[in-house]
Computed example of a mutant assay.
Amino acid sequence: MEKKTARLTILIDPEKKKALETLCQQQDLTPSQVVRQLIRDYLQKHGVEYTTQTTLSRPKGGTN
């Protein structure tokens, strides 16, 4: 789990922001949680490793 945070400012269409906030509220999530998960998924998809990466977020592979 990350210990420090850094600010990332994004510009988004107001209607998309409103729709995201509504959906997040229905799912009991914050928009920040959703964006952080999207970033983790994107990094994983492209095979990017980083120091705060947990074993739960790494791609599954190998033998069981």
Rank of each mutant, 00 (worst) to 15 (best):
I39D: 01
E15W: 02
G47H: 02
I39C: 09
K16E: 11
K17S: 13
T9F: 00
P31I: 03
Y42D: 13
P14T: 06
T54F: 02
T9S: 10
Q27N: 12
E21H: 09
V34Q: 03
P59F: 05
K4Y: 05
L29Y: 07
L11N: 13
I12N: 03
A19L: 08
I10L: 12
K17H: 04
G62H: 03
G62D: 02
I12F: 03
T63M: 13
M1H: 12
Y50G: 14
V48K: 04
K3P: 01
S32W: 00
K16A: 10
I12E: 08
T5W: 07
T9V: 09
K17D: 15
S57M: 15
L23G: 05
L29V: 09
E21N: 14
Y50N: 09
K60S: 10
L23I: 08
A6M: 09
L8A: 05
K45I: 06
Y50M: 07
I39V: 15
K16I: 07
Q33W: 04
E49T: 14
I39H: 00
V48W: 01
P14F: 01
K18S: 11
D28P: 00
I12K: 01
G61Y: 09
Q53N: 05
K3M: 10
E15R: 08
C24P: 05
T51A: 14
R36A: 14
T51D: 15
T51K: 12
I39F: 01
E2V: 12
P31E: 04
L20G: 03
V48P: 00
L11H: 03
Q44I: 02
L38V: 11
Q53E: 15
A6W: 06
T63G: 09
L29F: 04
T22P: 00
P59G: 11
G61C: 01
K16F: 07
Q25E: 09
R7K: 13
N64D: 08
Y42C: 08
T54E: 13
G61I: 03
T22S: 09
T30F: 01
K16C: 11
R58Y: 04
L43K: 05
K4G: 04
Q37I: 02
Q53D: 10
V48R: 03
L11Y: 12
Q53W: 03
R36V: 08
S32C: 10
N64L: 11
K60G: 09
E15V: 06
A6N: 09
G61K: 06
I12S: 05
R36C: 06
V35R: 03
Q53A: 11
R58D: 11
T55S: 11
E49R: 13
T63E: 14
Q26T: 04
T63R: 14
L11R: 06
R36P: 00
K4C: 00
G61W: 06
E15T: 08
K3G: 10
I12Q: 05
S32R: 03
G61E: 12
D41F: 00
A6T: 13
